[in-house]
Design a protein around this nucleic acid. Structure first.
Lengths: 142, 142
DNA sequence: CTATAAAAAGTATATAACATGCACCTTTAA
DNA sequence: TTAAAGGTGCATGTTATATACTTTTTATAG
């Protein structure tokens, strides 16, 4: 019962970028600061950029920055974007023999809803309230 | 973001056994009725039996049956028993560089709590309200 | 009172699925 | 030309799932 690492990394990226405010950064710097492989991070950033939560500019002097106000990005949305599936069980494949005489699915989906609604109360801004120490933000690419 | 199949199977087993009331059954019959491999089911039943939610008797004419009133078994407890981990993220391995300046963990754990509390409202009895058709229960071992 | 059979319980290993990591290539724009 | 994002494919590792085999327990038949 765990979120995927992709979702986890998406949060880390967003927190990091939000902490930098307007300043533009690059995936390379992110990779070094967060100690996550450059190529791997690309996929995560890519997906985030597809929603305009991250603004990416290509070409020389390109880079990425937050494309939305931190207060406007609900954590729920991040989970919804990154997770492949949100349903706690799969009654169809392989088909459960108790189907359709079973109420479990509905109950679990409800619980999942409760999870998501709990996240609805928070935005990215809540994750960057405490200032991030400079030692983490100040990464110089050699 | 899915429960493991073990948890899923645990629910199926419990629903099936609860539907039979007092009648004793065997793992073999369960396996045929639910179309889950005998050897695989054993592990699930075993784990459930370790809690006395299932009463298992060994030896000839042995078998399994529900060891607790369906109203007394909260669905939450089943999830807690079967799932290896309930924490949505792992900030420690590999260690997240944003630690400990990050509030994400607490927020996600809260959401997880909401999930579990939602399950608290239901017991196994809620899953066997609608009667299970005889065609599913009446499995004869050849 | 011994042997047998039927059941759960336990242990080990194989397989499959999925997440992750890495390498390489393409596109863009200064 | 260079530095950046964007895209694709494959290798690797981990975890979940499935299977096979062995042991223990207990009723019952002889």
């Amino acid at each position: 019962m765990r979120l995927t690492k992709h979702t986890d990394y998406a949060f880390r990226v967003l927190i990091y970028i939000a902490s930098m405010r307007e300043e533009k950064t690059t995936i390379q710097k992110l990779s070094q600061a967060l100690e996550i492989s450059n190529d791997h991070l690309k996929k995560v950033v890519n997906k985030l950029a597809s929603t305009h939560w991250i603004a990416a500019s290509r070409g020389k002097n390109g880079g990425i920055k937050l494309g939305i106000a931190p207060e406007a990005l609900k954590l729920r949305e991040v989970v919804e974007l990154m997770e492949q599936t949100l349903s706690p069980v799969n009654c169809e494949a392989p088909l459960c023999k108790l189907n359709p005489h079973c109420h479990l699915r509905g109950i679990l989906d409800n619980a999942q809803q409760a999870f998501m609604e709990s996240l609805d109360a928070y935005t990215l801004a809540d994750l960057v309230k405490a200032p991030m120490p400079e030692t983490i933000l100040a990464i110089e690419v050699s």
